[in-house]
Amino acid sequence: MPPSPLGDEGTSRRPLLEIVIPAYNEEGRLPGGLLQMCAKLARLPFPTSVIVVDNASTDRTAEIVRTWPRGQVPVRLVQCAIPGKGAAVRAGLLGTSAPFVGFCDADMATDLAAVDVALGLLLSGERVVIGSRGHRGSHVENRHSRVRELGAFGFRALARVLVPGVSDTQCGFKFFDGAMAREIAARLRTPGFAFDVELLARCAERGARVREIAVRWRDMPGSRFSPARHTFGIVLELGRIWLRLRVPSRPAAHPAWEPPLDPVGSP
């Protein structure tokens, strides 16, 4: 059967928006997430595309992307051998070329209606738009344990020291001016969980306001974050970010990454 004319049109024009999805062993959740994302983007009145970053998965994650049906919204695979969500998002952002870019988690915990709001703000001149579960207009369905809630509270308190005024650095839904995102991604050195903090701090360093928006967010099963296993590593990452922000850095063609911490998901 020949490709549909709509699919040809959607794949032949440069995308206005590219969305990165980091994926580590996501064969169970990725197909459903891609279906949701592609359906959402196909309804937008301009070309879009999706980049899935396979973060050294040992399951069928990469195969799912390679064999994804061709359609109106192109889905492309990028490989990232360095463990950690931060490394994966960095690789994905550096693989974009669109005027506007974003990233979200494979589980699509954030309702994709927020894409319209984020893009509208970017088109109006905002350069950083992020989903915030702490926004008073957000609706959050949370099933986290009390221990994990306390850990998240402590993390937010530390993150606010580095990114003042931002209530939720870790919601996996962030959109940017594309040129700025690529410039900042080249400078990122945090491969693990706390990479969002460095990313947003670098944006603020560039003079970009971080605009938080309300989202509908639902806690999804399958998170790899464990307070017992990851708390020390996260505090260490935040300390490194604090030190790094005090010393001007320059992008390097082959940056010396710090020893990767365990790859974990959103809190």
Rank of each mutant, 00 (worst) to 15 (best):
A91E: 01
A88H: 05
V101S: 01
T169H: 07
V117C: 10
S49T: 04
E141F: 15
F155W: 08
D168R: 02
R148H: 15
R160N: 13
L123G: 13
L44Y: 06
A114I: 00
G86K: 04
D105W: 04
V78N: 03
G102D: 08
G92Q: 00
R90L: 02
V52S: 01
E126K: 13
G131H: 00
T169E: 05
G92F: 00
Q72K: 15
V101H: 02
S97I: 12
S57E: 08
G137L: 10
R143S: 15
A152G: 11
D111K: 08
I82K: 13
L162R: 05
G86C: 07
I130S: 03
A152W: 07
P45L: 12
A88K: 06
P47Q: 06
S97D: 12
T58G: 15
S145N: 10
T110R: 02
K85A: 11
F46N: 09
W68L: 00
V161H: 14
S49N: 05
G95E: 04
P45V: 14
V128C: 08
R143W: 14
G154V: 09
W68I: 06
R146G: 14
G95V: 00
V65G: 03
Q72L: 13
G165T: 13
P74E: 01
V78R: 00
S132V: 03
R76W: 02
H135G: 10
H135L: 07
T169P: 12
D111V: 07
F155V: 02
T67W: 14
A157V: 14
A87R: 04
A157M: 15
V53Y: 00
T169R: 01
L93E: 03
A106Y: 05
D111G: 09
G125Y: 10
E149H: 13
D168M: 01
F100K: 07
R156T: 09
G120F: 10
G92V: 05
L158K: 09
G137D: 11
A114F: 00
G154S: 09
V65N: 03
A56F: 07
